[in-house]
Nucleic acid binder design. Structure first.
Lengths: 223, 223
DNA sequence: GCGGTTACTATCCAGATGGATAATTAGCCG
DNA sequence: CGGCTAATTATCCATCTGGATAGTAACCGC
């Protein structure tokens, strides 16, 4: 709550509950059908509202989309912020903090598979929509992540001459993929990645593969 | 060419070049906008054809989609098949074959980022479309991949108690993600993952992280 | 060349969609 | 209560979409 970003589109005051309901419905519809195929009417119906009302609060479909994405990233920032307990648990140890973050991120991806889906749908070509959304929500955070990856590369956790960008997308992809493709996994393997057990198992596997307990600040991996 | 699967939808003979042109255009449009928002007219325009002609050869939009996906998987199978040279180069060594496959797969993902995008778009919910496509193209191949992953887990290359499904999606996600999100990477990092250099660098990083040269059939990673 | 099947085009249509606008209701200040 | 603004609904509209159909051109065995 502390730093709820001003949602640009809302030209008027709208009840907090309905606002969330609308954005949540929009999130699901946009993720399910993409910007083009999602319809204002379906979003309204899902939120139990009329088509005209959404157009009253968010003038255009595009502005609704921006508000939705803003909501998405805001929620992500909140859900991925380290709690005091976590900061204490990982005190000082960069690797331990990274492990905690990995687990948190895996759980976030499982909880909100729409996130990966929306980003991928928008990322067909450098559109004006994507450009604007990235400038507002992504550029800042990504710079920090990039720095962290560079540290992990220097420390020897990741291959010495890897590009930090490669490492970032490898790790995020490894965390997201199974949940974004959950229906595929169910249909082709008969495996449901969205059970509590499967989520935790995935988190542990990710940790074991990218930051195993034995990992040290050594340079063994040099090629 | 040898085993060109019968494309179900084509009720009539259609020139091989135009057929490819149509499916290639359809692939791009479906990947760009999703099934719902992609339009037959846009696909036709992209292939330089009339709207009616596509509806003549592929009766419905859905059948065009199936033909498109069949084309996609057929092409994938062909492009990922080991050549004689590769079989010789990796002779006997399972790990070396895995490394060769990883590099091939990364290059494939870079060449055809639509693949990941289409699969993810269809994988919002277990739809009839997805179900049918998986039954036809994925189920068989996935069983083999799964077996391989189980071997790699047993051999100690991957964490002992990992679920093979987790490992599969971790690796494929790690390979695909950066290319499926290429526009995002460009806009937020100023990094273009689709240059020759970047693609090869990514392949090497993937290999170094999942199957480094030093990797042996040891059990060091046991937790 | 001719009949007929196949390939392709030109139109038409009903339904849906984003958006605009008018009509109605609710809330609020006095 | 009365006026006024903001919230919400009800309609309307131009456009686009998948699909249907009728008409035309090309091909082919004879």
């Amino acid at each position: 709550m502390q730093h709820m970003v001003e949602i640009e589109a809302a030209s008027s005051r709208i009840g907090e509950d309905t606002r969330i309901a609308v954005l949540d419905a929009a999130l699901k519809e946009f993720a399910a059908h993409g910007f083009g195929a999602a319809t204002i009417r379906d979003i309204a119906a899902r939120a139990g509202l009329s088509h005209g009302m959404i157009r009253y609060h968010y003038k255009t479909k595009e502005r609704l989309w921006f508000a939705t994405v803003a909501f998405l990233f805001e929620r992500q920032r909140e859900e991925l912020r380290f709690t005091d307990e976590e900061l204490q648990r990982g005190r000082g140890d960069k690797l331990e903090m990274f492990r905690i973050w990995l687990r948190k991120y895996v759980r976030y991806c499982a909880r909100h598979p729409e996130h990966a889906r929306i980003m991928m749908q928008e990322s067909v070509a450098p559109s004006a929509r994507l450009e604007k959304a990235i400038a507002k929500h992504l550029r800042g955070g990504h710079a920090i992540v990039r720095k962290q990856m560079e540290d992990h590369i220097k420390s020897g956790l990741f291959p010495k001459n890897a590009r930090p960008e490669s490492v970032i997308y490898i790790i995020t992809g490894a965390c997201q993929n199974i949940f974004a493709l959950a229906p595929e996994a169910r249909l082709s393997f008969g495996y449901d990645p969205l059970t509590k057990k499967a989520i935790e198992a995935h988190a542990e596997t990710v940790v074991a593969m990218f930051c195993p307990p034995g990992a040290q600040v050594n340079t063994k991996r040099k090629r």
